[in-house]
Write a protein that binds this DNA or RNA. Structure first.
Lengths: 126, 126, 126, 126
DNA sequence: GTGGTCTAGACCACC
DNA sequence: GTGGTCTAGACCACC
C-alpha cells in the first residue's frame, strides 16, 4: 500500500490546463495567468508553477512572451491528442481497477451501459 | 483545481482491507496485523491505524479482542456489498471524468468495448 | 475490586447529550457547542470531544457541517430508543447490585415500592 | 457534567470490605490482608489503604492488633446495618436516575417486575 | 470561526 | 504482547 499517491502538483497544473483546452474553455491565443498570480491563487510555491509552465512550453502547448505573459499555443490537433491521451489513461485505470474487483470485461461493459441507461431515464424525467 | 486529493490515510487502510476481502485474500476469522505492527509497516502513527480498525469494527467488518488482536468478521454477504459499493464508486468516477473530457456515454461504451476487444486479441496471441 | 470504574470521557459526553435529548432540552435542529468550545468548558482535550461527536454522527444522532458546527439530528424515535436503552442499562445495574447485597427480586420490589410510597406521602405533606 | 466521578479509592476499599461482610465472605475474627500487602495487590499507595483501615477501625468494623494484623470486628448487627445502608444508597440512586429519564415511580416498578419475571422464566428454562 | 486528519507519546487494562 | 483512552499540538479545508 502506498499513501500520498497524488500526482506531483506541477503535473496536476498541466492536466488542469489540458482539461480547460479540451473543454474549449481555453483556445489558441488566450492569455493564461502569470506564474506569480497563479501560484498565489493555488497557494503553491512559484517554482512549482514555473516548472509546469516550462514543461507546457517545451511541448509547445503554450508560448511565453517576455513582458507580455503566457499564451495558449495549442491548436485543435494538439487538443485532440490531449483528449485521447487523457481518455486512454482513464480507460486504463478503470479497466485495471474494475478487474481487481473481480469483474470481467463483459460485466464492466454491462454495468457501464446500465448506469448510462439509468442516467438517461433520469434526465428525461426532469 | 484541487491538490492533495488523496483520501485520508485511515480510509485508504479500510479500502485496502476491503479489497483484500473482495479478492478472497482475507476471510472470516483471519487475524489481521496488530495496530502497532501495521502502523510500523505503513510508517504511520498507531492512532491512524487504530482509527481505521475502529471504523471497521463499527461496521462489523472486523472484531477486536483485547489482548489478542483483530479478526475478520465480514461474511460473504458483506464481501459482496463491498464489491458492489466499490464498483459503483469507480463507475461514477469514470463516467464523471470521461464526461468532463467531452465524450458521450455512447462513445465511452465504444472505447471500453474496443479496448477489451484489443486486450482479448492480445491475450490470444500469447 | 476495581478502581477507576468511570466510563471513558467520550462515552460520558455522549450519554450527557442523550440525557438532554431524553429530557427534551435538546431537539432536532438544535446546534450543540463546537468541539473546541465544549472541550474548553469540560477542560478536556478537543480530540476527546471530537471522538464523542464523531461517534454521535456515526449513529446519526447529530450531523456536523464543516465550518458551521454540529446539529441534533435525532428524531422522537431515536429519543425514545435512547430512553429505553438507558433505562435498561440502569435496571440491569440495579438488579445486579441489589442481588449482590443478598436481596431477592421480591425484596427489591418491596423496597422500591415502600420508598415510593414514602416519597408520595412526603410530597403530599408539602 | 462532571468527570472522574468515582468515589475516592479509600472509600471504595471500605465498600469492598463491607460487601464481603454482607455476602458472608468475611466474618467476625477473620484476618484481612496487611496494609502493605493489600496496597501492592491493588497497586495503590500504602497511605490510601492505611486511610481506609483507619476509618474502618474508627467505626469498629475492624480491629488492628500490633504485630498480628487486622481482624474483622463487625458483628451480625453491623453487617445488617451496612446491608441496609448500601441498599438505601442504591435505591436512591436508581430512583433519581430513572426519574431523570422521565419515568414515573409506577413505571419503574413495572419495569423492574417485568425484568424479574423474564429472568425467572429464563432460569426455569435452563 | 468551524470541523478533519495526523503525529508523538503517555498510561492503562487484559493476556 | 494486545487493544483502549487521552493529551498536546500541528496543519489543513471550508466559511
Amino acid at each position: 500500500m502506498d499513501f500520498d499517491n497524488t500526482q506531483p502538483i506541477y503535473k496536476q497544473i498541466i492536466d488542469g490546463y489540458k482539461k480547460q483546452l479540451i473543454r474549449g474553455e481555453l483556445q489558441q491565443g488566450d492569455k493564461i495567468p502569470s506564474q506569480r498570480e497563479y501560484a498565489e491563487k493555488l497557494r503553491v510555491n512559484p517554482n512549482t508553477v514555473q516548472r509546469a509552465y516550462r514543461e507546457m512550453e517545451s511541448m509547445q502547448m503554450v508560448e511565453t512572451v517576455r513582458g507580455q505573459g503566457t499564451f495558449i499555443m495549442a491548436d485543435l490537433n494538439m487538443q485532440n491528442r490531449f483528449r485521447q491521451e487523457m481518455a486512454d489513461a482513464l480507460l486504463s485505470y478503470f479497466i485495471r481497477e474494475i478487474g481487481s474487483l473481480g469483474y470481467t470485461g463483459e460485466e464492466a461493459l454491462q454495468m457501464l451501459a446500465a448506469r448510462q441507461a439509468a442516467m438517461k431515464e433520469e434526465s428525461c424525467n426532469d
